[in-house]
Design a protein around this nucleic acid. Structure first.
Lengths: 195, 195
DNA sequence: TTGCCATGAGAACGTTCGTTCTCTACTATA
DNA sequence: TATAGTAGAGAACGAACGTTCTCATGGCAA
């Protein structure tokens, strides 16, 4: 993998390796040497592509952002019904929570660990959360819901992530989905499709 | 403060100093020397009372747990109406979010940063969250709500904490309270008292 | 007073970290 | 073939960490 790899290949491999390590053990607990070992590229190459550890963290968060957007978009596209598309967010969470290495929202974790010391990390996390809020607000708008409903659904999704992480159980996704159904019905006045 | 203080006084001062530092900058970013400087006790004294940094972190979390329980109980006692007592959780959050140094839930932050490397920290965080769930479930039981409602309200509270921390705005508390009102009405069938 | 244990202030230890440097090997152009 | 530039492997650096040790000071029992 290491020898003869293009810069783009090396970039991807390094970011993916760092992501796995950072997400599993926390950023501060992972040395650059561990990243080097897992990625299979020498430190020199890593530092040429990412001048500092902070740059690598930002790249990891950017990758997570894209994966999140892709995953949630794909889950939404599975259904044609607008309300189901909105609720698909919680089905996506349910699948995620069941993964063996699920350890909560990487952005929330990064913010708690590094947000106070790194403006760039704080901004990246804020932007990801704002992007998710815009996504939900858009879906809510399509079903004629109020802006307040979108904010409420976002809280449920965020709470489900931390609760699932700490409790170690995926059931928070179902709880959030049920609450979302109630809130949507109350806001739009129309009963949701029977599951 | 340092000279001639009893062990209990020293304990409290050290835990309080560590709490402020850990909460503001993250645990790993704060050296024991910073705790010593802020608390005003020599390292020797600190290490006699807390044999390791992990012990100090646990003590900080225990203190936070007590403060949380006290604060939320006091907020609930301000009203006699059972539903208002339940909603008081979100008023308590609103006050907290408006504090200058609010930086999210210390337990969630600690779990993200240390949970994977310290079983004791992970257990302390889990216990605090379980305790909060029992508290909410108890209040929900008093108004004749279903157990599922309690779980839903907890998600709102958790989501509000992370959202308020990351967005830097306290408005998540109001959003969560509004959602909670809707969920309570839907679950119990009785309209909440007009605010 | 004399000896003794606890205390305070801070130096010191060993480790780990992020980052840089050294040295060898190779590839590619003339 | 000769040579310049780059890549790889890993040592090395300075700083910071958690933790322990040194040593001077001071109260207290005999």
């Amino acid at each position: 993998m290491a020898a003869g790899a293009t810069d783009e290949q090396a970039r991807n491999a390094i970011v993916e390796a760092a992501d796995e390590l950072f997400y599993t053990r926390g950023v501060n607990s992972v040395g650059m040497d561990a990243v080097r070992e897992r990625a299979g590229f020498p430190l020199k190459r890593i530092y040429k592509l990412f001048p500092s550890k902070e740059d690598l963290v930002i790249a990891v968060l950017d990758r997570r952002s894209r994966l999140w957007d892709d995953g949630i978009t794909r889950a939404a596209e599975a259904s044609g019904d607008p309300v189901e598309r909105l609720l698909a967010v919680f089905d996506f969470l349910a699948d995620w929570f069941r993964e063996d290495d699920f350890r909560g929202c990487a952005f929330i974790n990064a913010y708690g660990e590094l947000g106070s010391g790194s403006t760039r990390v704080a901004m990246a996390v804020r932007e990801q959360k704002a992007s998710f809020q815009r996504y939900v607000a858009d879906l809510v708008g399509r079903i004629g819901g109020s802006p307040g409903l979108a904010a409420q659904l976002v809280l449920l999704a965020e709470g489900a992530q931390t609760t699932a992480a700490i409790s170690g159980s995926p059931e928070a996704a179902g709880v959030a989905r049920a609450a979302a159904t109630t809130l949507i019905e109350a806001d739009t006045g129309a009963p949701c499709v029977a599951a």
